[in-house]
């Protein structure tokens, strides 16, 4: 593989990894607090992309406003999903909320098929400026790539600041260690869990919109596989840990691109890498890179 190809792959890997990382944050925060794999997370992402698609295409709004509407819409949707489907089951056996989450994912997908139609639509609603190609040395890079990388890193810094420097962030981290104690400290548990869902969904929708810009398509099942892989990224990083999810996302994206880069005849199996990594990891180091405190009660 030539150097310029390698650089190209590294950039693409970082890009894909960043998109996974933004989705993975929502999984890891929800799992950290509720011990729930939020299967609907990827589908909330998909709904966010559809919101912005129709807002721009049907209401002829400027593209940036459409993106913001999609992201906010996904946040509201995430909050509603938690309120309607997960909160009533918080004290039920954990497997019940997992089944409900699967049902919710199925529900959102079929809702999108009914409301938006099952046929994939081309998502090319951003200014042509983004599709310009810069040639640096022998490497060709789209402007869009820089835009996505910039947004991804900006959001990650905002998130880390929010989690580690603000009162709300401290409450969110505290709640994932011990819910009753945190509520005794005067934090409103329900509000904070709701907020966690809003933040996670908004990050996922941002990632989804950038995903749709990059692989320019939107369809009802677009969220499922990225969602599953982002969950795997969260497991790689150590589920429950936000920095872990970010690192795991980048690692997974890089591995996926580089394996195909070095062994092009494995391209058909690309989607299987993540699953193989997940299984191997669960066998030998289920706690991931960043081990998170956990206890098992008898």
């Amino acid at each position: 593989m030539s150097t310029s190809n390698l650089i190209q792959d590294l950039i693409n890997g970082t890009l894909l990894g960043g998109l996974y990382a933004l989705i993975a944050v929502g999984y890891t925060m929800v799992y950290g607090i509720l011990r729930l794999i939020n299967f609907a997370h990827g589908d909330i992402l998909m709904m966010g992309v559809y919101f912005s698609f129709y807002f721009i295409a049907a209401l002829t709004m400027p593209w940036w406003l459409g993106f913001i509407v999609g992201i906010v819409g996904a946040g509201v949707l995430g909050f509603m999903v938690e309120r309607i489907a997960y909160r009533p089951l918080r004290s039920a056996p954990r497997i019940s909320s997992l089944i409900t989450a699967i049902g919710m994912s199925f529900f959102l997908e079929s809702l999108a098929v009914v409301v938006f139609g099952g046929i994939p639509k081309s998502f090319n609603l951003y200014p042509t400026f983004f599709s310009k190609i810069l040639i640096i040395g022998h490497t060709r890079i789209q402007v869009l790539t820089f835009f996505i990388l910039a947004v991804t890193f900006l959001l990650m810094f905002v998130l880390i600041w929010l989690l580690y420097k603000t009162k709300i962030g401290i409450a969110m981290r505290a709640i994932s260690v011990d819910i009753p104690t945190t509520s005794l400290m005067g934090a409103n548990v329900d509000n904070i869990i709701g907020l966690t869902f809003i933040i996670g969904s908004m990050l996922a929708a941002t990632s989804g919109i950038m995903w749709a810009m990059r692989y320019p398509q939107v369809q009802p099942y677009m969220g499922f596989v990225p969602g599953l892989k982002a969950f795997i990224a969260a497991v790689i990083g150590g589920i429950g840990s936000v920095p872990g999810a970010l690192v795991g996302g980048f690692l997974l994206g890089m591995v996926e691109i580089l394996i195909v880069g070095f062994f092009p005849n494995l391209a058909g199996y690309r989607d299987a890498f993540a699953y193989v990594i997940l299984i191997v990891l669960l066998m030998f180091r289920p706690s991931g890179i960043f081990k998170v405190y956990s206890e098992q009660k008898v």
Partner: peptide, 24 residues
């Protein structure tokens, strides 16, 4: 291998295996 895991980890591992079977 999967049955050494419990709860939702088992669920996600079996899902991953099924997807691998499908991709193969």
């Amino acid at each position: 291998p999967s049955l050494r895991l419990t709860g939702d980890y088992f669920a996600i591992a079996t899902l991953a295996f099924a997807e691998i079977i499908r991709i193969v």
